[in-house]
Measured scan of single mutants.
Amino acid sequence: GSPLAQQIKNIHSFIHQAKAAGRMDEVRTLQENLHQLMHEYFQQ
């Protein structure tokens, strides 16, 4: 897949890990990143 698709997959797993660790501030930051990446992805 594209590097962007790979990045989106990575962030999904980072979010999963951050949630499991209870780091909600990190989850929020990652979700904002994910949102931006998704936006770029669909602009392609």
Rank of each mutant, 00 (worst) to 15 (best):
G1C: 11
G1P: 11
G1T: 13
G1L: 13
G1E: 13
G1A: 11
G1D: 14
S2R: 06
S2V: 13
S2P: 12
P3Y: 12
P3R: 14
P3M: 14
L4G: 03
L4D: 02
L4Y: 02
L4A: 04
L4N: 03
L4H: 03
A5F: 14
A5I: 14
A5N: 07
A5L: 15
A5Q: 12
Q6L: 05
Q6T: 07
Q6F: 02
Q6V: 09
Q7A: 12
Q7G: 02
Q7K: 09
I8H: 00
I8E: 00
I8Y: 01
I8S: 00
I8R: 00
I8T: 00
I8W: 01
I8A: 01
I8G: 00
K9V: 06
K9T: 06
K9P: 00
K9G: 04
K9Q: 09
K9R: 09
K9L: 07
K9A: 11
N10E: 14
N10K: 13
N10M: 14
N10I: 13
N10F: 06
N10Q: 14
I11A: 04
I11E: 01
I11T: 05
I11D: 01
I11F: 04
I11V: 08
I11W: 02
I11L: 14
H12S: 05
H12E: 12
S13K: 14
S13G: 12
S13P: 00
S13H: 13
F14Y: 11
F14C: 11
F14G: 13
F14W: 11
F14S: 15
F14I: 14
I15Q: 00
I15C: 10
I15S: 00
I15M: 04
H16N: 14
H16M: 13
H16T: 14
H16V: 13
H16G: 10
Q17F: 04
Q17H: 07
Q17M: 12
Q17T: 07
Q17S: 09
Q17N: 08
Q17D: 10
A18F: 03
A18E: 03
A18R: 01
A18Q: 03
A18H: 03
A18G: 01
A18L: 08
A18I: 04
K19I: 13
K19T: 07
K19G: 03
K19A: 09
K19V: 09
K19S: 06
A20F: 01
A20R: 10
A20P: 01
A20C: 13
A20V: 11
A20E: 11
A20M: 08
A20H: 06
A20W: 03
A21I: 05
A21W: 04
A21G: 06
A21E: 11
A21D: 09
A21H: 06
A21L: 10
A21Q: 09
A21P: 01
G22S: 03
G22L: 03
G22N: 06
G22A: 03
G22V: 02
G22H: 05
G22Y: 01
G22I: 02
G22P: 00
R23N: 11
R23H: 08
R23E: 04
R23A: 05
R23G: 02
R23M: 08
R23P: 01
R23F: 05
R23D: 08
R23S: 04
M24F: 12
M24W: 15
M24V: 07
D25H: 08
D25T: 06
D25F: 03
D25Q: 08
D25P: 02
D25N: 08
E26N: 03
E26P: 01
E26V: 12
E26A: 05
E26T: 06
E26K: 06
E26W: 08
V27T: 02
V27G: 01
V27M: 06
V27H: 02
V27S: 02
V27A: 06
V27C: 05
V27W: 04
V27N: 01
R28I: 09
R28P: 02
R28L: 10
R28E: 06
R28V: 07
R28G: 04
T29Q: 13
T29R: 15
T29L: 12
T29M: 13
T29F: 10
T29Y: 08
T29D: 08
L30R: 01
L30I: 02
L30P: 00
L30E: 01
L30W: 06
L30D: 00
L30T: 00
L30M: 05
Q31N: 05
Q31P: 01
Q31E: 11
Q31I: 14
Q31M: 13
Q31D: 03
Q31H: 08
E32L: 06
E32V: 06
E32I: 07
E32H: 09
E32C: 13
E32K: 11
N33P: 01
N33L: 15
N33D: 10
N33G: 07
N33S: 13
N33E: 15
L34F: 03
L34E: 01
L34H: 01
L34P: 00
L34I: 04
L34M: 05
L34A: 02
H35D: 08
H35Q: 09
H35R: 14
H35W: 10
H35F: 07
H35N: 08
H35Y: 07
H35G: 04
H35E: 09
H35A: 12
H35V: 10
Q36P: 01
Q36A: 11
Q36M: 09
Q36F: 07
Q36W: 08
Q36G: 05
Q36D: 07
Q36I: 11
L37E: 00
L37Q: 01
L37H: 01
L37A: 03
L37P: 00
L37G: 00
M38E: 04
M38N: 02
M38Q: 04
M38F: 08
M38I: 13
M38H: 03
M38A: 03
M38C: 13
M38K: 03
H39M: 12
H39V: 11
H39N: 10
H39Q: 11
E40R: 06
E40S: 04
E40W: 07
E40L: 08
E40P: 01
Y41H: 05
Y41G: 03
Y41E: 03
Y41L: 09
F42Y: 11
F42V: 07
F42A: 08
F42D: 07
F42S: 06
F42C: 09
Q43S: 11
Q43E: 12
Q43Y: 07
Q43H: 10
Q43F: 07
Q44H: 10
Q44C: 15
Q44V: 10
Q44E: 11
Q44R: 06
Q44I: 11
Q44T: 12
